[in-house]
Design a protein around this nucleic acid. Sequence first.
DNA 1: TTGCGAAATGACAACGTTGTCATTTCGTTA
DNA 2: TAACGAAATGACAACGTTGTCATTTCGCAA
Lengths: 336, 336
Amino acid sequence: MATMDKKNVSMNDVAIAAGVSLKTVSRVINEPDSVRESTRDKVHSAMEALGFRTNFAARSLKLGRYGCIGVVLFHLSGGAVDMIDGIADAAEERGFALTMIKKRAGEKMTLADAARRMSQLPVDGMIFNLRQMVDDFDTFEAPKDLKTVIITPMEHPTCSTVSDDQEGGARMACEYFLNHGHKNVYFVSGKKESLSSQCRMKGWRAALEARGIEPPEPLQGDWNADSGYAAGLVLADKPDCTAVLAANDCMANGVMMALRDKGLSVPNDVSVIGFDDELYKTIPNSILTSVKFRHRELGVRALNEVVAGLEAPSSRSRTLVSGVLVERSSVKDLRA
Amino acid sequence: MATMDKKNVSMNDVAIAAGVSLKTVSRVINEPDSVRESTRDKVHSAMEALGFRTNFAARSLKLGRYGCIGVVLFHLSGGAVDMIDGIADAAEERGFALTMIKKRAGEKMTLADAARRMSQLPVDGMIFNLRQMVDDFDTFEAPKDLKTVIITPMEHPTCSTVSDDQEGGARMACEYFLNHGHKNVYFVSGKKESLSSQCRMKGWRAALEARGIEPPEPLQGDWNADSGYAAGLVLADKPDCTAVLAANDCMANGVMMALRDKGLSVPNDVSVIGFDDELYKTIPNSILTSVKFRHRELGVRALNEVVAGLEAPSSRSRTLVSGVLVERSSVKDLRA
DNA sequence: TTGCGAAATGACAACGTTGTCATTTCGTTA
DNA sequence: TAACGAAATGACAACGTTGTCATTTCGCAA
């Protein structure tokens, strides 16, 4: 019978109701084995009857920790869902909850702003999800007592970072083309300010240069299919274009549609690779070969890194989660 | 100069360093106007020098509130990003942070489980994101002192709920077909257990029955394009099929591809409408008319509902966020 | 029954803040 | 200069929990 007209039920209330001491109630919760069974039952009944719930604030005040990891979302994109999913699952598994704040659209938020805000909240450590450049990236110093992990492809001087190996993924795709006999690879980029796009472009460039190939001018896209289509129309007119790497699957699809509309066939005339491996959800019998990143794994790693560093917040590490090339049939083998 | 070898810097440390009382430091933070400027400066310098940050636990313990809203993710799908985005933005705007937990894959979690877990965390109110049925939905009672809002299309006996008007959206799409002279509408569903799919189907059925039309057997899909393609192949053989409503855009695209492969044209032979309006991202020059829900708005409403109910947790309301029909050219007007 | 070590329980302080109320300091007016 | 009310500051308790250490109770051997 929950009768409580009063405010909150404290351990003391439970103790009185059960006819035991405050400390015994505490023990029933934290070290049940040290309490006689009959006593435990009395206390449990009292807790039930009064609707007792431990007070988070008092508990954390005493313990000096919260059991929460802060997550700052500077940017919330498609892949972010899976990453959050990974973070949340890993947190759950290790007994942590998440405390989340987000950069508002239009607002300018530096790493220092985020750290200041977070350090007033219930967190033992924090994760920043950073997909675009931010002003104070290089100068930022994390609070010395709060382990901080940044999810970003850039290396940071003092903080641990975790990232997809976007550059490696792009290189892998490029080499795949080259190993299949292609002599050159065109590139369609995503939005300029996106670090993902920048890294993918960097990897593409590096792979070509490593073979002594001069990278052609990249085509600027904006992640959406229409921009890929526009790029495809341009590429269709280039006789030396046999291979196109698009910075995501949507644009890759745009490219393919444009090529088809120009009377070219994929992969017979032109080969195409995309990123993220999500076209199959939208296109039946999709043939697009694509570089897939394990966003979920990324989140898991980030959380584990934070938890591992709770005791030594100033430790620093760099984690790269490799991508996977999901092979379908959009690349033609030009050898022999 | 932050020298702190010690553990945490408390207001008391600041007070001593600044040569004032503990309470004055507190005032500098919470009611700066009541402190003489010279004193305020001394205190600020001391805070700076020692690297003071207010202790969340102590503060909330005294205040009896946290300034955090709990979010329980029972299910993390595509549309959830935008919803979380809305929740987070609205929270930020009202000065709240979010505390998040998530149902782990495979784990069974009831509303009661979630409420129990959450009520041990720093939250003043909570939001459940519930997209599938759960065992204790009807019997669940929220903690009396914790405003609880459930994001779900179902009505709940005691809790406030917020939802997209999925049923209304489906009805709207159906009526659009009928108003354009179509005599019947076929339906391709999403995964069976999804409440969204169920509601969309319900709306479709209701719209037809309201005009005295016997709804044909719905085709079972799984949200992905391939299942839509399979459905499309079946529908292509039905001479009376002039209109298809697919429970999402991916399946709608699958349907369209199948129709095309069978030599039928959209919209000349068959008209199609989808849900979520996301095909344009993947398909260049997309023609698909689609029902779009405002997930972001949904999140904003949910958060506002929680905040509004903080003082009166037992209040109850039901909010429906209407969908919008985004017209393109995949529906043919059969009249005249 | 007594005595003893181990197990179970309890009293009290402490965590770092804010609210209450008392005290000091200040600027003005008589 | 004294007296006064207002402004500024301070002393102390309280929020609800857990750690420390003291005390009580228990089970069992003598």
